[in-house]
Design a binder for these strands. Sequence first.
DNA 1: ACCTGAACACCGTTCAAGT
DNA 2: ACCTGAACACCGTTCAAGT
Lengths: 186, 186
Amino acid sequence: MTSTRDALVDAAADLLAAGGPAAVTLREVGRRAGVSHNAPYKHFADKEELLAAVAGRELTRRSGVSREGEDPAAALSRRAKAYVRWAMAYPARFKLVFGAWTTASAELGEAASASRASFVETVRAAQAAGAAPPGDPERVTALVLALAHGAADLALGGHLSRDGKGHADPEDLVDDLMALLAQGAG
Amino acid sequence: MTSTRDALVDAAADLLAAGGPAAVTLREVGRRAGVSHNAPYKHFADKEELLAAVAGRELTRRSGVSREGEDPAAALSRRAKAYVRWAMAYPARFKLVFGAWTTASAELGEAASASRASFVETVRAAQAAGAAPPGDPERVTALVLALAHGAADLALGGHLSRDGKGHADPEDLVDDLMALLAQGAG
DNA sequence: ACCTGAACACCGTTCAAGT
DNA sequence: ACCTGAACACCGTTCAAGT
């Protein structure tokens, strides 16, 4: 017994995954949810607010699960690679979540904060274990996320290793950074 | 005496800078170039091909200028920061250039290759000077570009240092990576 | 070779009206 | 409170026709 609202968000997420952002039209969203083409306006102020709901739900679902007793260095590498793998597997959701939002969705903001805070804790543990250099853990987190984000985004655009030489996939670049971080810690 | 084609590309670039991708409509492009709303179809197969021309021209203009006698470590840092600064100053052009192209524009491909090759040479010089770790220079280039790209893209989306703590702007992250590279070289 | 004007099939959004 | 159907002002693209 899903609400109409949930049905609309489901439909939008499906369309996004299947055909990219251009495929998400309010008319098709309504059709799939079994309502008229402007019923969405009774639940969301406009199209962007519907997309913000899709992004917020995605971020909430993807919230990091920490594992008991995992080696801190391995945990950091695993999380950075999970980020990259998620981006490569669901490019449209990835680009949606990290786009520039004019609508400040509460759910979206909170989910992003929670996800980031969890990542910072992983970095802090890695620092304590000597697998990352000292210094503000928020800043080291930003460094790792920026590398993972950029590697994934470049790869999605086909701008990584176009010509065979120096072929590096995004996860290889995460490995390279992890090696530098470990070296920088020692 | 600019050709109609050039006038169309100019108009599209202006609209992109002023109002983002949504503002680039073929109708307004035509109006600004002083032609009808479908004259663009006599010069470009479709809207994407016009945008590819805008992106290709931008990439050509921005092609790296190497400086004689510059310290290799400083040169690498300067170029990475120039990349970040360009992205922050012209976000729409940045996102356009690094988007996923279905149209394989010759100009766009060649400009991208040339730009990348020039960056690889800068990395090679930095390695020779002991300012970057050894190994495939293409791969070290990919690492630096991925970090710069990700830092800029996250910053543009407001996803860097949202809460004041650990505040790092994209150029700070470039500095952090440069420090790690220098340490990794020694 | 290059351009125009009308037309087609869309789109997001608004509005009056229904239950 | 939630939904519908018609309407408005767009959009990219196509096509027949003009020079």
